[in-house]
Design a protein around this nucleic acid. Structure first.
Lengths: 231, 231
DNA sequence: CGCCAGTTTGACAGCCATCAATGGGGGTGG
DNA sequence: CCACCCCCATTGATGGCTGTCAAACTGGCG
């Protein structure tokens, strides 16, 4: 982990390809916060549990962060997947022991401590409004994932999961995107076995719903409407 | 649906049995908001989609509210279940068409419109802090449900689902609680078939994990630790 | 009494978790 | 440079679980 300054931030995230308008507002928000914000650069497989220490909220400026928990059975369950522009709450004294982990080669995160967050409404009310909007977006993201997990068949789960991922990663319809996680991560996120994930993806490829250049490079074809059993 | 005033509120919710300390803070919060709050009493199966109209956030003072969506296939999926003291976000211009529905005989809800919510940090900063805490609790609730849905076996899902429900409904360990929803609702919430829900509950009853006086009255025995395959 | 919604149980086919094995790619050390 | 190892992805085989269809039972209500 490496602390970075606001001044060095633009040099880092400017490189991020295909930034959407919504992401720019997050970068602007980060700059406007000034000294209240803490930035950090991480590398693959870094464990960033320390991010929770001072509470408040965090967000992702580049890369992908996984929020996970290890069950008594030893199984890892991924509760949330945060990508560029996504916010997440940092709850101290949470009896549930969550871990945060980087799943991309590199990631840049930002956060504000709880004490700075609660003083924000008086000092910068419009920034607080932005925080509230983003927190509601976090709720939407979790709700979407509940809908994905609620699908009965594994092919449906994977199809809707990948579809969500693609719309988040690229505005362009049908463009190839680089999956920010392994098959194992997908399995632990949707709650099915790795082998079933692999089989489901192979099945979708055969049916022409997705195309794979490499196992990590995926393009969605809008063929879902042609396959009513996937809805 | 019936509008009720703040003055009549105490007569309604005071009757709610087994109120926990956390719930009292919600009632206090409701009173302190004054004119900004809108109260409503509903009856079973009422559709309260109109609650979203002015945005902002809502919360439950008594009864149970379901947030659901109808898929193209005609299936109903329950995304969230809000009980006494639970908050939920009311997002206008959400492309996803959610419905809100009462699953108990009666329910009382409260809400603040978006315009009142965004002016709250300047007028009553400590109330806004409370809103933020509750919004984070909403995130925790959804995360917990993702963990429930992530379980592989249906008996595990039902066991952890009912366990969560009981700890939320009663502080007393092992006390019988009245389930605020039907087997169909449970099925649509955890994403399995009704018959499987029924079979799983019967299975748990045979193994001594739960006890049922009536199909709706349930008591958890802390026997889960005796059954390692349920963790 | 008949109807209806909710719950439960049975039978069965299809799907999925598990175990097992193979192949590919990137890294390290010889 | 090559051998080796490890992680990841994929495919096969199989038993067990679950979705689906069907039917019976309950309690409430007109």
């Amino acid at each position: 982990m490496e602390r970075i300054s606001l001044a060095k931030l633009s040099a880092t995230v400017e490189l991020a390809p295909g930034r959407s308008p919504a992401y720019e507002t997050v970068v602007n928000f980060t700059h406007e916060l000034g000294t209240a914000v803490t930035l950090a650069r991480w590398e693959r497989a870094d464990c960033c549990d320390s991010i929770v220490e001072s509470g408040g909220i965090g967000w992702v400026l580049s890369g992908t962060v996984l929020k996970s928990v290890i069950l008594e059975s030893g199984q890892r369950r991924i509760v949330d997947l945060m990508m560029r522009g996504d916010f997440f709450s940092l709850q101290r004294d949470d009896p549930r022991v969550f871990s945060f982990e980087i799943s991309t080669d590199e990631a840049v995160t930002a956060r504000i401590a709880h004490r700075d967050l609660i003083s924000l409404p008086v000092s910068q009310p419009d920034l607080y409004r932005f925080v509230h909007e983003r927190t509601c977006e976090t709720i939407s993201r979790l709700e979407n994932h509940i809908l994905v997990q609620g699908r009965t068949r594994s092919a449906q789960k994977i199809a809707s999961y990948l579809s969500l991922l693609c719309t988040h990663l690229s505005e362009e319809e049908g463009a190839a995107v680089e999956l920010p996680m392994s098959r194992y991560d997908i399995a632990d996120h949707v709650g099915i076995a790795v082998e079933t994930v692999s089989r489901a993806i192979t099945d979708l490829r055969r049916r022409g719903v997705v195309e794979l250049e490499t196992p990590r490079s995926l393009a969605m074809r809008q063929a879902q409407k042609l396959h009513p059993d996937l809805t």
